[in-house]
């Protein structure tokens, strides 16, 4: 009768960090499927490639750090980072660009800071932002929805575009709605939509993708893997701000629906901003965190240099997360006031 002397509690809720990550990955799959449905094989190839690379880089660094491989790879965080990065990238990005992005995400943004749980910034978004800054040409070459462009790339063609350096055929490329809107110049919104009938026709593809990510996000909410605070505050703020400007000047500003259903909004709101490691943790902090991201997204989209701004907004607020946590501490049982800040 060998009795184990362990400290309480003696029971534990089933479920591990790896399970959490796996569920997040699963919740992102409908989005990936929708991307494939509308944009061809590119997103899938990108995703598989990025996940493989992420695991590879993680394994190499773990080896260098002399950490057990299976234990750390089994938390699936590297795979998730690779997948999220791939989902944010343009569908037919050349392989070396993806490689650079994953390398920076896993090696520099995550492992150099000490691995899972230690990184101050969202690794996938660091990778994305770096690519966007360094390779603006590649990073803005988006494919259009197949049904709109009418050009379909076979699986082999897609492989050739991504890995063999064949340029993306012009027939396939198309600007994203946000880009088009960004560069509408002096046109009013109505004139713009009247001019780009192709884009209007394809708008529903991007909306479908966002809808798929929204469904995945709702799944995460139901499984209590994330709380409503960050996505709720983010979407609500973006809705309110875009609604205000749309109401004031509808000819120059996109409608709230347009802002909420294009770009990486749903992916960002439910999958990226909610990354617990880099987000605020208290409920109040999460609300401020999400709302600030929503506000920043609108500001950068409307007055900034980039058509979409999820990555930059998330990174900026990552920077503020510890601060938010210190100043939004809950009131402890038996205390009159919540403590604020941190005493030195």
């Amino acid at each position: 009768m060998a009795l184990m002397r362990l400290s309480s509690p003696h029971v534990h809720r089933p479920g591990k960090t790896g399970d959490v990550m796996k569920q997040v990955i699963a919740a992102a799959l409908p989005g990936l499927a929708t991307l494939v449905w509308y944009f061809g094989w590119g997103p899938l190839i990108n995703a598989v490639f990025a996940v493989t690379l992420a695991l590879l880089f993680e394994a190499v660094i773990l080896k260098l750090r002399r950490r057990p491989l299976g234990f750390y790879l089994g938390d699936f965080s590297a795979a998730l980072t690779g997948l999220l990065l791939a989902l944010a990238l343009p569908p037919y990005l050349p392989w070396w660009t993806t490689t650079v992005g994953v390398f920076v995400a896993i090696v520099i943004a995550k492992q150099l800071y000490g691995g899972l749980g230690q990184n101050p910034f969202n690794p996938a978004m660091i990778g994305y932002a770096l690519l966007l800054i360094s390779f603006p040409v590649e990073m803005t070459r988006w494919a259009g929805p197949q049904e709109v462009t009418g050009a379909q790339l076979s699986f082999v063609d897609a492989l050739a575009v991504i890995f063999a350096g064949q340029g993306l055929p012009d027939a396939v490329t198309m600007a994203t709605p946000l880009e088009t809107f960004k560069h509408k110049g002096a046109l009013t919104a109505d004139e713009l939509w009247a001019q780009s009938a192709q884009l209007l026709a394809g708008l529903h593809a991007w909306q479908a993708v966002n809808l798929a990510f929204l469904l995945g996000g709702i799944y995460l909410l139901l499984r209590r893997i994330i709380t409503w605070h960050i996505p709720g505050a983010l979407l609500f703020t973006l809705f309110m701000v875009s609604g205000f400007f749309y109401g004031a000047d509808p000819s120059n500003h996109g409608s709230p629906l347009f802002h909420l259903s294009t770009g990486a909004i749903m992916l960002g709101a439910f999958f990226i901003a909610t990354d617990p490691v880099t987000a605020a943790t208290s409920n109040k902090g999460k609300l401020v965190f999400g709302a600030s991201i929503g506000l920043l997204i609108y500001i950068i989209r409307t007055w900034g240099n980039y058509p979409d701004a999820v990555a930059f907004s998330v990174l900026l607020m990552n920077l503020a997360a510890p601060f938010l946590d210190y100043y939004t501490r809950p009131r402890t049982y038996g205390h009159k006031q919540p403590q604020k800040g941190i005493k030195r």
């Binding site: 362990l6 960090t17 959490v20 691995g115 709380t227 617990p276 987000a279 946590d325 809950p330």
Partner: peptide
């Protein structure tokens, strides 16, 4: 037996269940 501890990912689950409202 308790499995080996992994890194904290600041998921905040502990905070949601703490009856003393600690962090």
């Amino acid at each position: 037996p308790a499995p080996p501890a992994q890194n904290c990912i600041r998921c905040g689950a502990c905070e949601q269940v703490c009856p003393a409202e600690l962090l």
